[in-house]
Design a protein around this nucleic acid. Sequence first.
RNA 1: CCGGCGGUGGCAGAGCGGCUGAUGCGCGGGUCUGUAAAACCCGUUUAGGUAGGUUCGACUCCUACCCGCCGGA
Length: 381
Amino acid sequence: MFSFQVKKQLGEARFSVLTTPHGSIPGPFFQFVATQAAIRGMVFTEDLQKLGVDILLANTYHLHLRPGEDIVAAAGGLHEFMQWERPITTDSGGYQVFSLGTQVTVDPGGVTFRSPRSGDLVRFTPESTMQMQAKLGADIIMPLDVCTPYGASLPEVARAVEQTTEWAKRCQLEHERLQSGRPFPQVVYGIVQGGVYPDLREKSAASLRELNFFGYSIGGELRDQDDYMVEEGVLMTTPHLPADKPRYLMGSGAPEDIVRAVRAGIDQFDCVLPVRNARHGKVYMDLNTTELIACLRDPARPVEPARLYTAHDMRKSIYARDFSVFSPANPATERAYSRAYVHHLLRAEPLSGVRLTVLHNIHFYVQLLQAIRQTIEAYGS
RNA sequence: CCGGCGGUGGCAGAGCGGCUGAUGCGCGGGUCUGUAAAACCCGUUUAGGUAGGUUCGACUCCUACCCGCCGGA
């Protein structure tokens, strides 16, 4: 029921097809983040279908806190719960190990969170995340991992790699145990850690390969305010990943990140950026497909954000700039033609204004990924 | 015409006889990457309807006038 195939290759960039029990989707693909089973900003399943979204990512940690995996399971699983018939991925909660910082303690058995909402202690183990994810019923599920912050020391990252690998084994075992008799099978990915240290990335990848996961992710925080090591992190990892398996760069997804990573052989992405930025008033527009094609065909060409697209802050001067923000080609924004209407949405009904910008950015990303695929398919071999 | 209430920054809206205007919105700038984020950070004042009076000192108390809102003729 699951398969992955690389159809064409342009340099290291791959045009692929992933088949799941909930349909086949072309790659490289982008997973919009629906943390709590919904994309923030009043986006509905109907919108996503209209916009051509392929796959969504939800979060085990957040769904465990609310509404709880048992409730989702009782509703018939995530697909039913969300009224979404296409593929879904769930993250394990590993990222919260990093993002919740001081609220989390890691020990060899698992992680203990203090819920920012209630203050309650929540315990996750490799086994329990697999159980929860089995109940949630996404197509692609992730093992519990230790996500290291940018700037973590080598010993620290080495420890995270070791812990992640050991947990990956435990997740694998638990997953196999849980799969029998499921109506819809699931697949697990291995998450490569190792921060910015090539030796650790290699070691992490090598030991995960032995476990033979369906796909492989690149995890860990690879940037901070001043430094940017995403591309380096990808480049030092992909050579150690199997060529015939999906490669998933977790959490990175500015348009330029995507182009660079695709060029390095990544097939799968997720990122909160397009939706969060939209909610905060920043919209992406003017995708330069000519430049995009040039970047994909020439791996040595620098990927410059400013040449690839424009990011416009709606807060600053919605009236000063032209209205191409609201692409008439976008069915979800087709009503957004008149100045009066936009004024109405953004001032009088901020909820609706946010919805509009979120839809716009989703549309932009769908187009971006489509253009990437088309380019690889057209020029690749 | 009578009575009541009120006139504070672009708007809304507090407090106080002195220690230089809280807070919200707006506006300007910034951050955002497996969502503790429709969030957060920084900037945006030398105001007191007008004219007098009391006082060492008034936005704060008093008087008159102007304007607005509510009620009554």
